[in-house]
């Protein structure tokens, strides 16, 4: 009974799917980040509705972590044959764990950098409240945070790319 449960838990496909799920959870960071930025944006737009467009651009910036997570999740699903219509490929426990490990960078960095970027975006929105002409600087400050999500995405992607399944 217990061995059966354990073998199900460590079933390769299952572990790989867990990895895909984790990668998609990077969206938590984006959700939080975009939320933080959105609160700041509303406050600024309340004063000056003309700043809607500018504030929206800045609010969108922390949204990318979710996209990166989705990207990795999608690639994992492709890799194990969940998408594509040819049925699932056999995944060994070892391969499943590899895939799981590959999902970790974007999962963890995605969440944390998403929130941090949201805060940076919120202050950039405060910046355009006073000096709308300086939006580019606010964007660059915000994008500085994203670098680390990009690096995590890269590592997740390269790790995943190195794993052979099927």
């Amino acid at each position: 009974m217990i061995t059966e449960m354990i073998s199900t838990l460590f079933n390769g496909s299952y572990v790989a799917m867990l990895g895909a799920a984790l990668a998609a959870l990077a969206g938590i960071g984006s959700a939080k980040g975009v939320g933080i930025a959105g609160e700041a944006a509303s406050a600024v737009v309340a004063e000056d509705p003309k700043k809607f467009g500018q504030a929206l651009i800045l609010q969108a910036l922390p949204g990318t972590q979710g996209i990166y997570g989705l990207l990795i999740a999608f690639l994992i699903m492709l890799k194990i044959g969940l998408l594509g219509g040819n049925g699932m490929l056999p995944v060994t426990t070892e391969q499943g764990l590899y895939i799981f490990a590959a999902a970790l960078p974007i999962f963890i960095v995605g969440i944390i950098s998403g929130i941090a970027q949201g805060k940076a975006a919120a202050s950039a929105i405060m910046l355009i409240a006073k000096r709308p002409e300086e939006i580019a600087k606010g964007m660059v400050y915000t994008a500085m945070v994203e670098t680390y999500a990009v690096l995590a995405l890269l590592i997740s992607f390269l790790m995943l790319n190195g794993i052979q399944v099927g």
Binding site: T64, I67, L70, L71, F74, V150, L153, F157
Partner: peptide, 23 residues
């Protein structure tokens, strides 16, 4: 130099999200 890896990462993001949409 490492910072330029974003050229790959963002390029992938466009391509993969586009195929997610198509799928």
């Amino acid at each position: 130099v490492l910072s330029y890896s974003r050229l790959l990462a963002l390029g992938l993001a466009t391509g993969v999200i586009a195929s997610v949409i198509n799928t």
